[in-house]
Design a protein around this nucleic acid. Structure first.
Lengths: 196, 196
DNA sequence: CGTCTATTTGAATGTACTCAAAAGCGGTGG
DNA sequence: CCACCGCTTTTGAGTACATTCAAATAGACG
C-alpha cells in the first residue's frame, strides 16, 4: 500500500473498514494531482469527469451570473470531496467552476472507474451515499439560514460552523458564499459603528 | 403483488429494475398511511424514524425560528421522498416539522428495515444514493438562486421549476420557501405598479 | 519598491420588511 | 341559501437591511 494515499484510505476506513482487495482496487483508480494556487480543477463548459478528493489545500466551486458576479457554491478542504454532480452524471457541460484557493493536492476518480467500483464493491455505494448525505444536511442548514436570517447572523454562524476556513480564505469569498457584497460584510465586521 | 403500492414499485423500477424477491421484501416493510390535511407526519422534538414516500398529496418540511416564523425547507409531492435525514440517522430529536398540505397517502419505511434492506440488496443503496443526489442538485440550484438573485427572479424561477406546485399551495408558503414575506410576494405578483 | 488584490468608509439608492387595516375566498352550520 | 368564521391576499406608509459606486487604505507578494 502506497504512502501517498494514506489519508484517503484512512478517510474511507472512518466510514466503513476496507479489505485489502478493496484498498488495492482503490489504489489503481486514484489519480493524484497537485494544483497551484488559483488554478482550475474544472472550468465552465467542460464536462466534469472526476470525483475529486482534497488531500491538502482548499478549493471552491462557483457560478458566474449574468452580471458577471461570482457566487461561491461550496468550499472543500482537507478530507472533503468536490464535484459537479449534475455534469458528472449527465455528462453535460458544467455550468460551474472549481478552483483552488491554495496550493492543493487532490486525488481524482474518473467516472467509469467509480461506476465500476460501485458495481464491484457495493460498500462504496454505501460510502458515497453517506458522503452525499452529510453534504446534503449541510446544504439544508445553509438554506434554512439563508431564508430565515439576516446577513450578520449568517456570518456569525459561518464563523461557528467553519472556524478554520474563515482564517484561511479572503472575506470577499465568504461574502460571496453568504450572498452579500464584500463591502457589506466589511461593515458587519466593523460593527456598523459611527451612528448611522 | 398488491395493487396498493403500484406507483412505488414503478417508481423504483424507473431507477433500476427490481427482481420479484426484491419487490416482495419491499412489500413487507412498507407501511401505508393516510394523512388528513394539515396533520403532522413528524413533529419537532420527535425522532424521525421513517423514510416517507408521498403517493398522493403534498407535504412540506419546515423549521420555526426564534421569532416564531415558519421557514419552509422543502415541499414533497407525488413520487417524492421526505425525511429529516439528520434525525433519521443520528436518532436525535428532530428540529423540523413535516406536515401535510392536502389529504395525503404515504408509504413509510422504518429505519431498521431500511438498513436491513440496504444490507440484503445493495441495489437499494444505489437507488437511495441516486435519489439523494437528485435532491442535492436541486438544493444546489436553490442555494445559487438564493445568493445571486433578487426575490422577483427567484419567484419566477420557482414558477418555472415547480409549475404544478405553485397552483396547489398558498402563496404564503411559497414566500416562506423563497425567504420573503407574504406581503412582499403579493407586491411582486401585483407588479409593484403605482409609481413608488 | 511597486503592483495587484483585499478591505474599509461614506453617501445615495434600491430592495425587502413591519405593522396595520381592508378585501377576498372557502368551507361550515343554521 | 346565506351568514359567519378563519385564513389568505392585497395595499400603503414608514423603516430597516443591503447594494452600488467611488475613493482611500491596507496587505501580500514577487
Amino acid at each position: 500500500m502506497s504512502f501517498i494515499m494514506d489519508n484517503l484510505i484512512a478517510y474511507f476506513d472512518s466510514y466503513i473498514q476496507l479489505t485489502d482487495s478493496e484498498k488495492n482496487e482503490l489504489q489503481k483508480i486514484l489519480e493524484r494531482r497537485t494544483i497551484k494556487k488559483n488554478h482550475f480543477i474544472l472550468q465552465k463548459y467542460d464536462v466534469c469527469n472526476h470525483y475529486t478528493f482534497i488531500s491538502e489545500g482548499i478549493t471552491r466551486s462557483y457560478a458566474i451570473n449574468d452580471q458577471g458576479t461570482e457566487n461561491n457554491l461550496k468550499f472543500a478542504t482537507e478530507n472533503e470531496w468536490i464535484v459537479d454532480l449534475h455534469s458528472f452524471h449527465s455528462k453535460n457541460k458544467s455550468q460551474i467552476y472549481i478552483e483552488s484557493m491554495e496550493p492543493t493536492i487532490i486525488f481524482q476518480i474518473e467516472r467509469s472507474n467509480l461506476l465500476e467500483l460501485f458495481a464491484k464493491f457495493p460498500k462504496f455505494d454505501t460510502i458515497f451515499r453517506v458522503i452525499i448525505e452529510d453534504d446534503y444536511m449541510r446544504l439544508e442548514r445553509r438554506i434554512i439560514q439563508n431564508i430565515s436570517s439576516k446577513a450578520e447572523d449568517r456570518y456569525q454562524q459561518f464563523l461557528i460552523e467553519y472556524p478554520k476556513l474563515s482564517t484561511r480564505i479572503p472575506n470577499t469569498h465568504i461574502a460571496s458564499y453568504l450572498g452579500i457584497t464584500p463591502e457589506f460584510l466589511s461593515k458587519i465586521r466593523g460593527g456598523f459603528s459611527k451612528k448611522n
